[in-house]
Amino acid sequence: MQPTAVPSNDGSDIALLPGQVSGVFTTARPTFGAAVDDFLNRRPVYEQPLEFPHNIHVGKEIACEVCHEGVDKGPKAGIPGLRTCMICHEAIATDRPRIQQITAMRDKGLDLAWQRVYGFSNDDHVRFNHAPHIRNKVECATCHGNVGEQTIAQRNVEHTMGFCVNCHNERKASIDCLTCHF
């Protein structure tokens, strides 16, 4: 049997999504260079399909969970699709070229292929769930940094295990391994 790349849980064949970090070098890396990049925390620059201005939206006092609506309901916060955008932009700022661009895309039945910025790779074996964190009043900025001041979301908080565990310790949350790793 020839070993093949680990399929990721969401059905794509790529073991590591762009921007995902892994703590260890494993044979799951396609090449040695990829392993070195991964070890040194060098991530590819992700090309987002659209320059989404987080700062403008947050500046209009729109809460994160308005668009990332899964965040208090389950594991995934969710990256909004065009339909979410159009809830407002059907009416708001329709004169801007970029809004017209996405309206046109929606009309053609297309959607935006957002690249994930944060996330765990498969071999971190982390089952992260947003909901309990939101329920326990953890600020989004605690783990995602100053996304509200960025245009394109940049990854500027490293989600190492020490980062998680320190917070769990401070908040007296469980630090049992099986809280996250299973």
Binding site: N9, G11, A28, N122, H125
Partner: peptide
């Protein structure tokens, strides 16, 4: 691969 359970991690070699 589409029937994989997203709540359980995939174990790699070793």
């Amino acid at each position: 691969q589409l029937q994989l359970n997203p709540d359980v991690s995939l174990r790699e070699v070793g």
